[in-house]
Design a protein around this nucleic acid. Structure first.
Lengths: 335, 335
DNA sequence: ATGAAAGCGCTAACAC
DNA sequence: GTGTTAGCGCTTTCAT
């Protein structure tokens, strides 16, 4: 049987659909009597208003698109991003919206917006190489929030952490342990990585330690195995006493490489990561890292977007805190 | 400016919207001439048909709901489930559908269906304790595919692996290495876990090894730390020479517990997991496990659902392969 | 307090 | 080949 509609309910109640609509949306101007009759009917016939018909009438889909600008593989295999996604989806749900996953291929996200399938977007930690995405979003006048800050994108609303500060926290920690030959392994073209490199350089400089190009590497593959091979190469070419890696997965790879080289972490070489994914305290040795609130990042992004949509004006970007989490992968430099 | 509509395009082209609709949907019965004019106009005005209006007219939302019946935390923190989700979302996208994340709280998934927001569902690895979900889905006549088989749910279409066979593979491996005191650590009320326990028992029996209740445990917390504490307790109470755990996360926890007890894996105790998440080959020692095709599971589920929706008849359930992946966490029993 | 009617943007059966 | 018209299910303005 075709689902029952508002017209049917109206007919059964002997009223117009206007009145039913009023009841449906808890509007005033309906007698208690009528309201009850209608509610009973709604209950009885298990009537559910057609969401799309409602959306088309209200000109609001009540849906939000989550744009995954990177390779899905890359995003889904890093627990940090997955946790941000969880935050986004949980909060979007809580706020009474629906979340649509959007990949940049196939159906273009802008088309999805122009088709009115979503009211706005959250874009998951894009980098500078995604400027074309921002541009098309602006051109379409689509509201969106980014979960990473992008330099020179002054218009963009984002939720992020102070990456430079996080890096400084990491570096201060290592330097206070006596390390001076500190390797940095980053990711290509991501503002977060670049900011962390800046923090790395500044902290070195403040402590009078010369910056050495050989100690800096960019790994295209930001996974455990990427970290492992990068660290192997670094070990060979620059003999650092400590590693600072821009995420925990890379750090886990580095630990592996160091161990494979017959060295001990942290006795021979210290390792510090970034993110503090749950895994990091489970590995051996438990990883010292910079914690950033992944779930909260997603939650905030969702809230900001909904605020954007409902107040119809751009909210302010937000910066969340980072913390140093000391575990056992870092120790005083070997004398 | 409000987005341009089909009426506008029709007016500009001096034709009826029927004709424009024909062009939009690549239907016949339009002269080449007219078609080109209209297409030019569509291009020029960057016209995108309103997806919801279309959906309402076609009585098809072109969207699929992904139901996450468990705690989101539990699902998102296990790379296996995340990979299934990636498979689902990738294939759904490829097939020209949209994926909506549905949590069982707040807005009920059945309501989402009745509101016509989705055409059907994929339910992510539910267990027997989710029978009420299936029931409500059946009652609503909502098409859905499960990514796990549930005993006694004969009507249900699912994509799964042969869990019992996987368990037998694991057990044959351990037994062939000489182990006889093999601990089993499972999860509560999940068919997959129960089937694996059945495989465990049967294999023991076939090899004339007595089943010992003390060697079997169910861990409510199916994470690394859950595996760790369960294994600690198991070590204390039953002194097994090998562990079979129903997922890799638990197995990683077990390895940790064993190491914390001053024992060596695999020299003193062997450990085998299930799933083969990417992490498993990165830990120390690399984990021997039963591989199941997570991504493919998601892809198949998506395909099956779309087939279900488009042919309007229930497709057949599918069983995917499992394989034993031997790494370094298992070895011959110590004599 | 209630309803008639227009409007949201599209598709499709049927007529010409 | 093209248009007319009804229909999809809801909200809302404006009367009463």
């Amino acid at each position: 049987m075709p689902a029952i509609t508002i017209d049917e309910i109206a007919r059964l109640a002997g009223v117009s659909k206007t009145t039913v609509s009023r009841v449906l949306n808890n509007k005033p101007d309906v007698s208690q009597q009528t309201r009850e009759t209608i509610m009973a009917l709604i209950e009885q016939y298990d009537f559910h208003p057609h969401a799309l018909a409602k959306a088309i009438s209200l000109q609001k889909s009540q849906s939000i698109g989550l744009i995954i600008p990177h390779e899905a593989q890359y995003i889904f295999s890093n627990p940090f991003y997955v946790e941000v996604m969880r935050g986004v989806s949980t909060e979007v749900d809580r706020l009474g919206y629906y979340l649509l996953i959007c990949y940049p291929h196939s159906q273009n996200y802008v088309d999805i917006y122009k088709q009115k399938r979503v009211d706005g977007f959250i874009i998951l930690s894009p980098g500078s190489l995604h400027k074309n995405i921002f541009k098309s979003l602006y051109d379409a006048e689509a509201p969106f929030i980014s979960t990473s800050m992008i330099p020179d994108e002054k218009e963009m609303v984002y939720v992020d952490v102070d990456n430079k500060r996080g890096a400084r926290l990491a570096m201060e920690h290592l330097i206070s342990l006596g390390h001076r030959r500190i390797a940095f392994i980053g990711k290509p073209r991501l503002a977060s990585s670049i900011e962390r490199l800046n923090g790395y350089r500044e902290t070195l400089q403040e402590h009078g330690i010369a910056y050495d190009d050989n100690l800096v590497m960019i790994s295209g593959d930001a996974s455990i195995s990427g970290g492992c091979s990068a660290a192997h190469e670094m070990l060979r070419r620059a003999n650092p006493t400590a590693f600072f890696l821009v995420n925990d997965l890379l750090a886990m790879g580095a630990i592996k490489a160091i161990q494979e080289s017959g060295l001990n972490v942290p006795r021979d070489v210290s390792v510090i990561g970034f993110d503090d994914i749950p895994l990091s305290e489970c590995i051996y040795p438990p990883l010292t890292t910079i914690r950033q609130p992944a779930f909260e990042k997603g939650v905030r992004a969702a809230r900001l977007l909904v605020q954007y949509l409902e107040k119809k004006k751009k909210p302010k970007s937000q910066l969340l805190d980072v913390d140093l989490v000391v575990r056992n992968s870092t120790a005083a430099v070997r004398s």
